[in-house]
Nucleic acid binder design. Structure first.
Lengths: 287, 287
DNA sequence: TATTTTTGATAAGAAATACTTATGATAAAC
DNA sequence: GTTTATCATAAGTATTTCTTATCAAAAATA
């Protein structure tokens, strides 16, 4: 098709062949073959020149369109090669999002101004699925996951704190041996934070027959209403106790914690970029 | 690109290879080669499956566009093969057009109802040029031309008649020997009819220093105004004497005539169609 | 945990395709 | 009438694509 377009432009087999960097017979043969494959002549040959047939004109138009689109591919490919990632689909779990997202977005916007960031907030299993099928590029969540296809990079560790009603302010820190009997309030199923809290509190199975909360914010409000006690991650303290009055207690020993980090597909050709972005985030999060 | 589009559709190298009617290694190799040529990975391979890279998605979109356009070519080519000519660019000289065109168009519309006809009226040299460069398909004009690239088909012959002022009505038919001295009125240069008339009348070069007319209609009006005498083709008599009063005289011997026919490029792939159309016209013109 | 199955990649040789050089044919230009 | 310009043809070569056979890795199964 490129040969044909050149031939039409120059109206001369020899010159078109030169431009196409092939020999004149090669070009003649290709045009002839084209006509055979199409089952219709493209040009009407005369002694020293030729004119396009009606179909030849239609075909040429289509050629220009197609060759233009092919050239566009080349441009796109070159852009894709040189480009340091232009869009970032970022996932984040609900027990991190409200507290860390502002800082994350600010940091990214500062270090990667052109980056078009889209955020999806969902629970770990959904995020992992989306990472695998390419819907998400990276996700901020609690590690470890142990998925061998995913790169896991730890950003920081954070402690959990005990939240109890204000009237318990001067009571001693409960000992692990008493945990089972305490009125623990938990997040609903699916939140990794629920599992992390469960592993720490190990509440009596019979004891906890209350409604599970759908957010940390709700949990704290339930504590304030004296429905029980709970754990929240340290990063949530500031925001969640701003409009409530509860007692926050840090554990002395065996402090419960979680690891917060970033994941992405090891196989992604952008893995290197993701690592760099994560490094940026990690540094900013230390503060 | 077709392989790639199929691969994306099925998400499976083996199946895509089957559909593409090639072996699985062949498909793997072609995809790999594509990626090499583009300089960017199209898919992110994992153990038993793959997902498209960002560029892979862009490329796929472009592939669909291009492959669609290529498929269109196939349709166009098939249409071009089976089609009995859909559009006809017809040329006709000014000394025929006013008298024959209505009949020509009626005949064509009757025998080839779907034919999209475009008419161009111009002098022989222009028509021949347009025939050569493909602007026109066929032309109705006076033969012969003697162009070996053109097919010439005679439709009919027609006589020229003498047009003189009414007051000459009872005068004898002028003898050829007296022609040189007669006040001949002629068409302007470029009209083949002028040359045909000239060849017959052979007027004295000094004698004819009047303005040449740009149409037969004007010639007849000039005769009526007693500016001289002229020749017109038989087919023009009816129309041109309808609103004028002049004397029409047929010659007894050595009657001047012209051959009217149709031409087209011998090399045109539609030559056969043109011949058929001409036959239709020819039959209709006999009447 | 070991075995089988699934899936895509690799290797080597075969088939198909595109290209090159040399030559021919034809009509236009001189 | 000779030369020139132009495209087509022919034969052989180079390149590309494909095939079969085999491999490697991970997932599914026993």
């Amino acid at each position: 098709m490129r040969y044909f377009a050149t031939l039409c432009r120059l109206g001369h087999f020899g010159h078109a062949a030169d431009i196409s960097a092939i020999s004149q017979p090669a070009l003649s043969m290709q045009i002839k073959k084209l006509e055979e494959e199409l089952g219709t002549p493209l040009i009407e040959r005369s002694a020293k020149s030729f004119i396009l047939t009606r179909f030849g004109h239609e075909f040429l138009t289509q050629c220009h369109k197609i060759l233009g689109d092919v050239d566009t591919i080349e441009l796109m490919a070159r852009a894709a090669q040189h480009q340091e990632i232009a869009a970032l689909n970022l996932g984040i779990i609900p027990t991190i999002a409200p507290y860390l997202l502002p800082q994350v977005l600010t940091t990214l916007a500062h270090h990667h101004p052109e980056l078009d960031i889209k955020v999806r907030e969902s629970q770990t299993t959904n995020l992992v699925k989306d990472i695998h099928d390419g819907t998400l590029d990276i996700a901020v969540l609690a590690l470890p996951l142990g998925d061998q296809h995913l790169e896991e990079t730890l950003m920081f560790q954070e402690d959990f704190v005990l939240v109890r009603p204000v009237h318990a302010k001067n009571m001693p820190i409960p000992a692990p041996s008493s945990f089972a009997k305490l009125p623990w309030l938990l997040l609903e199923e699916g939140h990794c934070f629920r599992d992390q809290a469960l592993a720490f509190c190990q509440p009596d199975v019979n004891e906890r027959r209350r409604h599970d909360a759908s957010s940390l914010s709700t949990l704290v409000q339930m504590v304030q209403a004296d429905l029980g006690i709970t754990l929240i991650p340290e990063m949530a303290i500031d925001l969640e106790t701003r409009s409530t009055t509860v007692d926050i207690v840090r554990f002395d020993t065996d402090t419960p914690k979680r690891d917060i980090g970033v994941i992405w597909r090891k196989s992604s050709p952008l893995a290197h970029s993701f690592a760099k972005i994560t490094e940026t985030l990690s540094t900013a999060m230390q503060r």
